[in-house]
Amino acid sequence: MATMTMVQALNSALDVMLGRDPDVLVFGEDVGYFGGVFRVTEGLQRKHGLTRCFDTPITEGGILAAAVGMGAYGLRPVVEIQFADYIYPAIDQLISEAARLRYRSAAEFTAPLVVRTPYGGGIFGGQTHSQSPEGLFTHVAGLKVVIPSTPYDAKGLLVAAIEDDDPVLFLEPKRLYNGPFSGRHDEPVRPWSGHPAAETPEDYYRVPFGQANVVREGSAVTLLAYGTMVHVALAAAEDTGIDVEVIDLRTLWPVDIETITASVCRTGRCVIVHEATRTSGFGAELSALVQENCFWSLEAPIVRVTGWDTPYPHVFEWEYFPGPKRIAQALRDVVEA
């Protein structure tokens, strides 16, 4: 075991998989010699060679297209899109091609690729370096969508993603790269060291898809979150003193419906938190699932706490970000309803 940041854990996952499987390739903008703008691929080209981890032109559509073609050849490409906000030129290759290739070819061709991309706000990145587009992709049949919240999960889930035979969108909460984040932006930055989930094996291991993590047990209300918002939700739960059960989904699709259903049927109340805009966000899907599966146990309306339905505004980052205060208010409202 070693104490790792999320960046180091992701780097370790790529390193382990490059070492285990010669069919794994890593490429994207600035990922080669430089090691990526967030340093996730640092040292991989030097260790594994120029053709195992290399730079691409600035062509997100081209990167995804090449990954689909390589997947068809039989490789397992792991590509980086530098910011999730830059993924849109690649969307045709991801949605129309990668996600449907297995289906349309009757499983003759597949696209076992992983798209890694940093998402989310909290770094004053404005509207083109802060977005959370997960809801666009959970809507697509054939895609899996993963968002880790700790170094341990980041590595285990990325290994599982690389070994998965279907295309996986692996969204990395950039605000958590170098430390957990309570959402209290005016407090000093905390490092990962000291956090139990920063203890990360240096060797191969997997965190399986479709298994949520109950990160805080409680009986009064169930809170569903993923990525950065898991930590913000935990801070909010502490603030309220309410007996909140916090569930970290880890994989948005496939979603762990059993864990969600068991929890909400027990607590009778549910708050859903994400940083993405509200309308048609993944919270809408979660809300519908909870309603369909737990209707007779619900004692209060399901509440969503999300980013506002605007582009991410640079200077109003902390008014936009659904911080612990808004989450705490939602928890109180739901419990008192």
Binding site: F124, G126, Q127, P313, H314
Partner: peptide, 16 residues
């Protein structure tokens, strides 16, 4: 500076 006289009302990153 994304200040009160920013013609873009603080919405964009600096230099945009």
């Amino acid at each position: 500076f994304s200040n009160a006289e920013d013609p873009l009302k603080g919405r964009q990153m600096p230099v945009f």
